[in-house]
Simulated scan of single mutants.
Amino acid sequence: MKVTKSEFVISAVGPDQYPVDALPEIALAGRSNVGKSSLINRMLSRKNLARTSSTPGKTQQLNYYRANDDLYLVDFPGYGYAKVSKTQRAAFGEMIERYLLNREELKLVLLVVDLRHPPSKDDIIMYDWLQYYDRDVCVVATKADKIPRSRWSKHIKMVKETLGFRPHHSMVMFSSESGLGKDELWSIIQSYTNYGLEADEANEDDTFSIEKGQE
């Protein structure tokens, strides 16, 4: 997808603040500091649209970013950060659960994990929860540029085994630094939104990805 227009729209804390234009929504879930903001910036071809922070747990709302007037990327609060109070974590959990269960515009959840490490307990809980409620999921393994190519397959296997990855889901290896996986991820998003999105020419660095449970 070639993004020619992108913008931050709103930080929402409840249904009364969600956009009402009925565009499809793609949600991003993951632990704090996993790189969701950097992923959004790379996907939307903007350097600082989604603000990255050295302070984990900063995002406390559902942040809506619109792409080409065709769809939204919706950034969830990061989970699993100890300095966020139990009360805040409970409030985040209720907000996210309400959105995931009731939002008709939601078409796909991107579960963002760090390719360098096994998925956390919270990642596993989120993945299992999404499966239980039959939400479509694509696992996005970020920071691929931090690992030698020769070890990619080993780390992908580690992520899949730790999560209990299901073959009918998608998985993409991603790097916000190099753009690895960007075109592949847009292609998957397009398949869930049914929009005739204009595709970029494939980048040679984007040739390695894992879809639909393929090794």
Rank of each mutant, 00 (worst) to 15 (best):
K2C: 00
T4V: 13
K5T: 08
S6Q: 11
I10H: 07
V13A: 12
G14N: 15
Y18P: 02
Y18R: 01
D21N: 14
E25M: 06
I26P: 06
I26G: 08
I26N: 06
A27Y: 09
L28A: 03
L28Y: 01
S32K: 11
N33W: 05
S37D: 11
S38Y: 10
M43V: 07
L44P: 09
L44Y: 04
A50N: 04
R51F: 12
T55W: 02
P56I: 04
G57L: 07
G57C: 07
Q61G: 02
N63Y: 04
R66K: 15
D70G: 05
D70V: 10
F76M: 13
A82M: 04
V84N: 15
S85N: 10
Q88T: 15
Q88D: 15
A91L: 10
A91V: 09
F92C: 03
E94H: 13
E97I: 06
E97F: 01
R98H: 14
R98M: 11
Y99Q: 03
E105C: 05
L111G: 01
D114Y: 02
L115M: 13
R116P: 08
P119S: 09
K121S: 14
D123E: 01
D123T: 03
I124T: 12
I124W: 05
M126W: 14
Y127A: 09
D128M: 09
W129F: 15
Y133D: 00
D136S: 15
C138T: 14
V139A: 06
V140D: 11
T142V: 02
T142K: 01
K143G: 04
K143Q: 08
D145E: 09
K146E: 11
R149V: 07
S150Q: 13
W152F: 15
S153K: 14
S153M: 09
K154H: 12
K154V: 04
K154P: 01
H155V: 00
M158L: 14
K160E: 12
L163V: 05
G164A: 08
F165I: 09
S170K: 06
M173H: 00
F174P: 02
S175I: 04
S175W: 05
E177N: 06
G179W: 01
L180F: 00
K182A: 10
S191C: 03
Y192N: 03
T193L: 08
T193C: 12
Y195G: 15
E198Y: 09
A202S: 12
E204I: 11
E211Y: 13
Q214G: 07
